[in-house]
Amino acid sequence: MTDALLAITVLWGFVFIYAVMATMDFGAGFWSMVYINRDKTTATNVANRYLSPTWEVTNTFIVALVVALYSLFPKATYTLGTILIIPGSAILLLLALRSAFLVFSNIATEYRKPLTYISGITGIIIPGILISVLPITHGQAIDHVDGVANLDLASLFTSPNTYAFIGFAISSTLFLSSLLLADYSKVSREMHAYKVYLKDGQIFGPLSLAMAFLIMLTLRNEAPWLYDRMIADLPLLWLSIGFFLIAGLGLFLPSFADKGVRGMPRLAVVATILQYLVASYVYGKAHLPYIIYPEITIQEAFTDPNSFRAVFTTYIVGFLILFPGFFYFWRLFMNDKQYLRQVGEEKE
């Protein structure tokens, strides 16, 4: 594997982790808003309990992603920075409002409702704009004036492909987050909330699949080079659909472990994440070697070998140092059954 390929794989890994974490984060914020008026179910509390300790960690991943991009592929920075100024600024503005009001809503309890509405709504728009970076890198909406690349917003937002991506981002955000929250409430033994989230998963699952098909359909006209290369990996695309169906089983079948309970949310969560993994691998592989089609490739944009070695060393050392921290964090907030149940009971 060449160094450039290794670097783009690391980057892809970061994108994938951030995509999963952000999906859960923004989705949980949205559900916490949707169910805020239902006093009977504890759905909002479950969402908040997940969200409060995790949003900061999730946010750090987006910073890590940007840093990795310009440290590994510095020569793409100039073009990327220029074409992303509008969508990038939009994301930053929404993200700032969203994070701040999320924190405020937990502190200023009397104003919780309006504050939660601000963070919930801004939060659900963000994935839509984030994902629009993908169709931008396909290159159709980029104009060249005097050798400088510029984004043509009009052409970006008249393309059905862009909307397919946006629709997919929002529906899959709601899908994966509802699965995760279903699992989370089941572990906390909050069956009311569990049923609510399971039902949401049943609605948004098929919707996400439809959106994914829509992406492929529109991609065929708008970026045939990408479409053809993705179709070349057809077996993997089938595999991805297979994982999706397993997730469906996890949503509709009665549970093997707990008698009388419908659904195995843990299975659905894992299957869905695997589905994302496979699908995004196919997409990423087809996208290579282009960072921005057709002018910026990973080889051209790649950093200097000395810098790459140094950066890569810090990845390894950083991972070794951080891993115990992440593990402890996970155990404390996501896997401490006693804690989750106890909090669940207190709230009831």
Binding site: Y70, F73, P74, L84, I85, T303, S307
Partner: peptide, 21 residues
């Protein structure tokens, strides 16, 4: 990166470590 892409290109090549760490 959005406002000073020329600067970050140099930083990305020569001085990526502080941001990374």
């Amino acid at each position: 990166s959005l406002l000073w892409p020329g600067f970050m290109e140099v930083i990305g090549r020569v001085m990526p470590l502080p941001f990374q760490i």
